[in-house]
Simulated scan of single mutants.
Amino acid sequence: MRAGAGPVAAPRRALVTGASSGLGRAFALGMAARGVDVVLVGRGADRLEAPAEEVRAAGASAEVLVADLAGEPGRRSVAERIADGTAPVDLVVNSAGLLGRIAPLAEQEPADLEEAIAVGITAIVDLTRASVAAMPARGGGAVLNVSSFMGYVPAPQGAVYAAAKAFTTSFSESVHCEVAGRGVHVTALCPGSVRTGLHRDSGRSGGRLGRYLEPDTVVEEGLAAVRAGEPICVPGMEYRIKVKLGAVLPRAAVRRRVLRIWRQ
């Protein structure tokens, strides 16, 4: 990964989407442990209660914002919170995402695909735009968009999810180049298989991309990349090697390897 554009100041308040579970919850708690106040965003107030209490128990303040990022009203409410200068957010972690059902594209429901695209692409664009529009006037800030190693490889039966992650990585790097000179940094975090409930909820137990990464490890590497102003972070040496190999191997060889994994 190419060098970033310089170090980033430590945040005072972070907004984390998908904060009720998985990596979003891990980021919320990781920020609180570092003394950073947290705005927790999720679909249901009941599911945000426990992580909010954990944030407060760590000594940080917790603000709960209920919003469904699959819909325009939810995305607008989060964008307005990012733009609000009364309690400014200087780190936005876009961690909400939907893997959805693992199945051939022809068997997927159009409504489910639209929801996955709204959360995995439209929300990333809307909330990143809101962040880079508001942060320069406040002296800077950062956006961490949670992408995936799956954006680097074909993903049969997970085509929309993988394509959304490829978009997130490319989009984040492009916007990073646009705004780094204005004191704002955008980082794409591209973990492989993480020990969360994401794959369990998809209904599939096999097809891991490599060794499981622990959520806390992914959080630490992601925040380190933000501090360094790096545009792309691939946690774990195994996955960094795979990304480099995938860039030089013939795509036919990559596809064969992926198909072997997916058939497990």
Rank of each mutant, 00 (worst) to 15 (best):
residue 113 L to N: 03
residue 71 G to M: 01
residue 10 A to D: 06
residue 180 A to R: 07
residue 239 Y to P: 01
residue 211 R to D: 07
residue 176 H to I: 02
residue 151 G to Y: 14
residue 192 G to T: 01
residue 120 G to H: 12
residue 81 R to N: 08
residue 107 E to M: 12
residue 165 K to A: 10
residue 22 G to W: 14
residue 116 A to C: 04
residue 144 L to F: 09
residue 166 A to I: 01
residue 128 T to C: 06
residue 148 S to A: 10
residue 1 M to T: 09
residue 176 H to R: 07
residue 43 R to G: 06
residue 131 S to E: 14
residue 82 I to D: 07
residue 35 G to S: 10
residue 79 A to L: 02
residue 141 G to D: 07
residue 6 G to E: 09
residue 246 G to Q: 09
residue 134 A to E: 14
residue 221 E to R: 13
residue 189 L to E: 09
residue 255 R to W: 12
residue 162 A to M: 08
residue 48 L to R: 12
residue 183 G to H: 09
residue 86 T to K: 14
residue 177 C to G: 12
residue 27 F to C: 11
residue 223 L to R: 04
residue 194 V to S: 03
residue 113 L to K: 04
residue 146 V to H: 04
residue 159 A to L: 13
residue 232 I to T: 14
residue 157 Q to V: 02
residue 58 A to C: 10
residue 157 Q to D: 12
residue 132 V to A: 06
residue 250 P to R: 11
residue 128 T to K: 05
residue 69 L to I: 04
residue 189 L to T: 03
residue 56 R to H: 07
residue 129 R to S: 09
residue 33 A to I: 00
residue 264 Q to H: 11
residue 52 A to Y: 05
residue 206 G to N: 11
residue 170 S to D: 09
residue 209 L to A: 15
residue 169 T to I: 06
residue 257 R to I: 03
residue 26 A to S: 15
residue 7 P to L: 05
residue 234 V to E: 10
residue 208 R to G: 11
residue 132 V to F: 08
residue 172 S to D: 11
residue 41 V to K: 14
residue 147 S to P: 00
residue 42 G to F: 06
residue 205 S to L: 08
residue 161 Y to I: 05
residue 134 A to P: 00
residue 58 A to Q: 13
residue 52 A to V: 03
residue 148 S to T: 10
residue 52 A to Q: 06
residue 121 I to H: 02
residue 32 A to H: 12
residue 212 Y to M: 08
residue 154 P to S: 06
residue 116 A to M: 13
residue 242 K to L: 15
residue 263 R to V: 00
residue 79 A to C: 01
residue 209 L to I: 11
residue 92 V to F: 10
